[in-house]
Design a protein around this nucleic acid. Sequence first.
DNA 1: ATCCGTTCTGGAAGCGGTTCCAGAATGCTC
DNA 2: GAGCATTCTGGAACCGCTTCCAGAACGGAT
Lengths: 330, 330
Amino acid sequence: MATILDVAREAGVGVGTVSRVINGRERVAPDTRARVLKVIERLEYSPNQSARSLSMGRTDAICVLVPFLTSASVNARLQGVVEALRSSGREVTLRVADTPEQRDQAIAAIVGGSKPAGLMVISLPLSEVTIAELRSAEVSTVAIDVALPGVPSVTVDDVAGGKLATQYLLDRGHRAIGFVGDDDEQKLGFRSSTNRRLGYLQAMADSGLGVQPEYIKTGPFGREVAHRLTRELLSLEDRPTAIFAASDTLAFGVLESVAAHGLSVPEDISVIGFDDVELAPYVGLTSVRQPLFESGKLGAAALLSLLDGTDVDDVPLSLTVVERSTVSDR
Amino acid sequence: MATILDVAREAGVGVGTVSRVINGRERVAPDTRARVLKVIERLEYSPNQSARSLSMGRTDAICVLVPFLTSASVNARLQGVVEALRSSGREVTLRVADTPEQRDQAIAAIVGGSKPAGLMVISLPLSEVTIAELRSAEVSTVAIDVALPGVPSVTVDDVAGGKLATQYLLDRGHRAIGFVGDDDEQKLGFRSSTNRRLGYLQAMADSGLGVQPEYIKTGPFGREVAHRLTRELLSLEDRPTAIFAASDTLAFGVLESVAAHGLSVPEDISVIGFDDVELAPYVGLTSVRQPLFESGKLGAAALLSLLDGTDVDDVPLSLTVVERSTVSDR
DNA sequence: ATCCGTTCTGGAAGCGGTTCCAGAATGCTC
DNA sequence: GAGCATTCTGGAACCGCTTCCAGAACGGAT
């Protein structure tokens, strides 16, 4: 492997000059530059990243921080991120934090250790002080699926999405609409289920409809939990005619539960999900679609331009309901 | 951030000694070690990875090399890998190579650049010379879902799997069995489809059955292609009563195509897939199951012990058919 | 011709580790 | 108590880059 010294010697210049042409920030005489470039080409020189990092006190990698990989939606976003980052030639490091401790540890490693050039946060809420740390460590950050104050974020309006889903059911004549979602208090502080429920409540209120408290069921995340919650919903005296699940994963649990109850969808009960994950079309689930893969691509593109020095704004993404076969008119 | 010099000064020892206690290979007097350890604790010292890498000429990260992220099976394996690697505290870098050029570029970056401590190869065949390069760069490597000569590999026996699937259909009375798979000649050299077809042919031969060449359809990877191939199969004069798809992804395409043809599964035609991806149960696809997530975990564990200095063997994984609702007796 | 301001350039210092070597300390034998 | 082997230890040299500073080269004004 050639080093910068080899290049300098071969080109008859000093190492400083070579460094300057590589980084291209400072000015170098055109012919000197050309000569150095030629030698670099000939020697197939490529700078040693470790040396570079040591000297500059930061890596040029991009770190992708996710709460977990097993979630279909997070996974789809990650795919988009990786796809868009590929062309940049930067190293991509992956950190998963599915507990607050792991999250804090990851942040500590980022700001106090590897100091990546950029950080891509997917779905994981971060505290103000964390964001301040990131900023003072000069780690350019972009968030996807979570609005972080002062950080460009690629998001959808979950409240509007909740309204959309609910209104869709209302438009089809449903009045008794149940909600199945995640608990408000979660260790990692996810807000989307809560916001979608807010939208649900608003839509109901806007239609002049009250909501019985028993129609709203929340629990810790997971399909099995949704299964249980649905059972409770179904054993109500006047059970709802439709259920809005705050995510597709929950909707699948709802669907299972309904089947286990000997009822059929959509004849006996309608179900609408949220996210439109890859599985949804296979199951025929009607769902509020948000562009998952796309969000990853857009987020990564935003991060890349941030690193390029151009400011970027928040990117709002729109929501549509994809009609399939789990909702019927009433 | 404290440096090794701070620790040395504070503990009243030389930097060499601190380095020795950190790395723990060479011997240091017990009380000296204790003293240094205490200072490290107090100063919350953690070694600068860039400096370490520069000095040692290698990173302590683990690189995961995949052909693409969008494949459900590769994705599931990756999840297992990340899960198992998490506890190691090592940085995980992700490289995707979906063309031979990208693969070669990734390898060049690995052996000539970042020099990670370990490399986890998922599903991607590598040439002998590549493997030699890796070895001479002292990058410990473990492969998953692909047998690399001289590299510990976590694999299933695809030929046996092909036989298993075919025998399952034969046992249910099918005699006219079609095969839908990937082309043999693929740019990245995947072998599993070919091997599964070999198993299919063997099973047929073992039962004294011949196979009409038109029953075997292959094409470039993808669900749409499977769709087309199936159409060809279905328009045959004496069309098969069952189809073995070399992967679940292909099987989904087969299923779509059958439906588009106005036929129903399994009444008119049976279908069996391979892999048992996350989607399979939702679609009710009968499939040859291989432990995807598990393979990732095992591979990562093997890599970790390799890095620990303990030799590891190949890990063979077993196959079972998961009966669902796409195969019926004949 | 001299002087001054620009532009360019060489190279030393520094980033924070590892490793090697020489010397100090220790323990043992005779 | 001297001599020797063994264990420990300090610190310089080095890894390959960036950055800063001082000086060279050059052009224009006087």
